[in-house]
Design a binder for these strands. Structure first.
Length: 188
DNA sequence: TGCCTGATGTTCT
DNA sequence: GAACATCAGGCAC
């Protein structure tokens, strides 16, 4: 059982539930606080998921208990981060695609070298902005320097559900979720 | 505004 | 050896 009960359920329910939740990152003596505004669900039964081909050294974190961070490296230069969901033994996780800044904007933009929306409106961008790399793979999100903070569930009318982005398999699976009101949504 | 491409490393076949 | 859950810069329109 994780501290985050909503993460223990099916990943396609956990993904929209993560919208609006906060991430608190301590780095270089700075506190950064951001709000999750776009997510995608991935599951081992899903051809687009890293866990689809079973547990490997790389994906073992996805098969662990909920409430941990799965960080992977892609395209030779980018990190992306996921929140592991579901019971241990099941390979499911939610990709964080976009966040909006609540606190620490200046520090965050300095890390990115960009300002405004472009600082955090993509999965690899927000990892760079928050200083997330493979050192945080398997990190427990209950503990510093990166904590997930649950927020009250948002009304369904706030949430848009659609198909995922940037994948070549199982494109038809509608497991992408974002906030209707956010400007940070990376792409249609 | 919108397509095309280069950068670059880890993983799996 | 190819694929890859990406991004940013460049060039054409």
């Amino acid at each position: 059982m994780s501290q985050f009960a909503f993460l223990d359920g099916p990943v396609e329910l956990a993904a929209p539930r993560l919208l609006g939740c906060l991430l608190e990152r301590e780095i270089d003596g700075q506190l950064l606080r951001v709000r999750i505004v776009e997510t995608e669900a991935y599951h081992q039964s899903d051809a687009a998921s890293h866990s689809y081909k079973g547990r490997t050294e790389r994906t073992k974190v996805m098969f662990g208990p909920a409430g941990f961070l799965y960080v992977y490296f892609t395209y030779g230069m980018h990190y992306c981060c996921n929140v592991v969901t579901g019971p241990a033994g099941e390979g499911s996780a939610v990709l964080i695609r976009a966040v909006e800044v609540i606190e620490g904007e200046a520090a965050l933009e300095a890390r990115r070298g960009r300002s405004g929306i472009a600082a955090t409106n993509g999965p690899a961008k927000l990892c760079q902005a928050l200083g997330i790399d493979k050192a945080l793979n398997g990190h427990d999100l209950r503990r510093p320097p990166l904590r997930l903070i649950e927020q009250p569930e948002l009304p369904a009318a706030e949430i848009v559900q659609t198909t995922r982005v940037g994948i070549s398999q199982a494109k038809e699976v509608p497991w992408r979720f974002y906030l209707r009101t956010s400007k940070y949504v990376s792409r249609q």
